[in-house]
Design a binder for these strands. Structure first.
Lengths: 106, 106
DNA sequence: TTAATAGTTAAGTTGTTACTGTAGTATTGC
DNA sequence: GCAATACTACAGTAACAACTTAACTATTAA
């Protein structure tokens, strides 16, 4: 698996879990601490920290600890890469349909 | 979880596995039978059939069996929905940055 | 009709992962 | 200093998912 494919893999893996998507949704509205991320979720703080680690590993989220607070924020580039992957497959399929239509037209 | 959220969940869950993404990549180039899908993958045919079922359940793929061959094709709407989810988070974050820049400018 | 092809069903194994509770460290506020 | 806060580390559990093999059905081709 190329490093590009590995990056895609990590992001899709990260986004496959509702709790992690909820964290990304929250972070898309602005930076947040780990505790703030945990607040709307019905899971323990260690569970949130574990999800956060997955998000960080995938490149979707970056964090910086200042004092005792870890502030988290979105990394849009990782979202972009994944969006592009999907768009590519859609456009491939559209091209395939076009080709088919052309062949039928002949 | 709303039905919209459930749909998003199913698609991200489906795309989280490399074998299934490979199947979607193949199908984006045009329809294929189950055996054709299995050919480039290093897993058994039943495994491919199981992955296919996940893809169908998620709405990413549709199939039609004619005779003994099941032909599979992409359903672009499901890809689109997921692409939109990601785009939304990116745009939210961009708006957040804009707002921050404006506040700093004042 | 027989053999080959294409896929399906079912059961079992194995590894992963999401989660918990407990106990800890580091930082901040009183 | 002391208590509260914010997180971190660790160990264990329980559920899930990916995959396999083996056996089966249905369709097509010779």
């Amino acid at each position: 698996m190329s490093s590009q494919a590995a990056a895609i893999d990590a992001v899709f893996h990260a986004l496959a879990v509702p709790a992690r998507r909820a964290m990304v949704e929250r972070l898309s509205l602005g930076p947040a601490s780990v505790t703030e991320l945990a607040k709307p979720l019905a899971i323990s703080l260690p569970a949130v920290a574990q999800h956060l680690e997955v998000l960080v590993t995938s490149g979707l989220v970056r964090t910086k600890k200042t004092g005792r607070v870890r502030v988290c924020h979105i990394e849009p580039a990782a979202l972009r890469t994944t969006e592009d992957w999907i768009a590519k497959r859609r456009s491939n399929w559209a091209r395939c349909l076009d080709r088919l239509a052309k062949e039928l037209g002949e």
